[in-house]
Amino acid sequence: MPLPRKESIATPADSTACKTAQGIETPPHVGQKSRVVLGAGVIELDNVGYSYGGGDLLSDISVQLAPGSFHFLTGPSGSGKTTLMKLCYGALLPTSGQVRAFDADMASLDRDQMALLRRRIGVVHQDCRFLDHLPLADNVALPLTVSGRDRGAESENLAELLAWVGLGSRTDALPPELSGGERQRAALARAVIMSPDVVLADEPTGNVDWEMSQRLLQLLVELNRMGKTVLIASHDLTLIRAAKSHVQARVLRISNRRLQLAGADL
């Protein structure tokens, strides 16, 4: 596995964001109730609500993502999956309740602390969000660049990472030259290059065919087996059902602005 080793994980300067349990834990019991409790979480949402334009998008969301766990977040389009993901990596702040990452209340972090926190949370965006003027290798290495890490020292890891996602021969390609599947794999490589503790993927298979979505899913499962906490937002129930045969995943569903644990009906 070509990902950077644990000792190369970037650690925030503030002590409040450095208390993550590193080992893989067996996911604890999951209760069938509206408050979804999955154990001591690297990311915890406590009675979170989010309103926009006078209306509630999310209400009373409480969930804890345990270290090393694998979760799907599903729900119909417009149900608030992307909003919930944004709350998890601090792009949005809740209008009520509290979001904690690595025991730190996100609302209390200053801007520098938030930047450092995001180096521990890898995000695969639905639209990938590349810098179109930079070649693929530079885009994937962007988290290293902005954190001041030496690109030269990391070049071997970068090459291995690109090979892992099957893009070893596309390093000089510009993002507009990549196919949908290549873009998603590149986005995944960028999300994990800092060896984050958590990987959040928002509809990572939304624009790719079934074969590629299986390939992407396999990559995320491999990451989870390395101990990464994985949360995937997807409306594709077929994909989720297929994934459950490969990994012990929990499925969370947003329904009527609230979060529920999906059961056997999935």
Binding site: A91, D112, A115, H125, L142, V146, G148, M194
Partner: peptide
């Protein structure tokens, strides 16, 4: 604006 947003999301500090 999009470049700045991406940089913030991958962990760039404001000063950077």
């Amino acid at each position: 604006a999009q470049v700045i947003e991406v940089l913030r999301l991958v962990g760039a500090r404001d000063s950077y």
